[in-house]
């Protein structure tokens, strides 16, 4: 599948109808999501015929993108039941299989080394400090091949240090810098739309 095709399909997905600020629910736009999964597949072979987990899947954009690119099994995990319902409808709409689990990631304990790749657009930790690092810690504990994640560019040094020193990553690499459009979704947003710089990271767990 071509990048443009993937981006087009993801652009039709339904997004949060009633976003919850405490969970930092922001949609992963089709531009970012398509590039993230396309790179994971075409540059590293981390998607097709793999088991992929989408952490904090929200409406399922990244997980669905993985399924469209040929992942054999995709599990989307989110704490919020309304998001999971939308994710489920989105998967049906595009006729892909997405296994969904409602769970607080902090309490997740996946057995064994079944998951190859974790993809995620974690909360950036602007409302709850450290939320993105919590996601990264869990992702590196679960993935046996690679973790793809988005983090604010302003936190680059911190992310790198934490991944290598505290979360057992063998390598941590910024693949590219992207603009993340944040539409005016919540009352505290004063501007109509802002875009922030985010890094697309690829982490490899030690021993992979």
């Amino acid at each position: 599948m071509k990048l443009k095709q993937l981006e087009g399909l993801l652009g039709d997905l339904q997004q949060f109808s009633n976003p919850k600020v405490e969970l930092e629910q922001y949609p992963t736009g089709p531009h970012i999501a398509s590039r993230m999964l396309y790179t994971a597949e075409n540059s590293f072979g981390d998607v097709s015929e793999r088991v992929v987990a989408d952490f904090g899947c929200g409406c399922g954009t990244l997980g669905i993108a993985a399924a469209l690119l040929g992942a054999e099994h995709v599990v989307g995990i989110d704490v919020d039941s309304q998001s999971l319902e939308i994710a489920s409808m989105n998967a049906q709409e595009l006729e892909v299989e997405l296994n969904l689990v409602q769970c607080d990631l902090r309490n997740l304990d996946f057995r064994g080394e079944i998951v190859d790749t974790v993809v995620m657009n974690p909360p950036f930790g602007t409302r709850k400090k450290g939320a993105d690092m919590e996601f990264l810690r869990m992702a590196l504990a679960v993935a046996s091949q690679a973790v793809y994640s988005l983090h604010k560019t302003s936190t680059r040094e911190h992310v790198k240090k934490a991944a290598l020193r505290d979360f057992n990553a063998g390598s941590a690499e910024v693949l590219c810098e992207l603009r993340y459009d944040v539409p005016q979704m919540y009352k505290f947003h004063k501007k109509r739309e802002v875009d922030i710089a985010v890094d697309l990271w690829r982490f490899v767990p030690q021993g992979a």
Binding site: V75, R111, I114
Partner: peptide, 21 residues
Amino acid sequence: MRLLTHNMLSSNIKGVTNGFP
């Protein structure tokens, strides 16, 4: 939910030592 997902999940309730399968 597929049984592949079931094969990964375990019960993580406080105090439970073996929550699988």
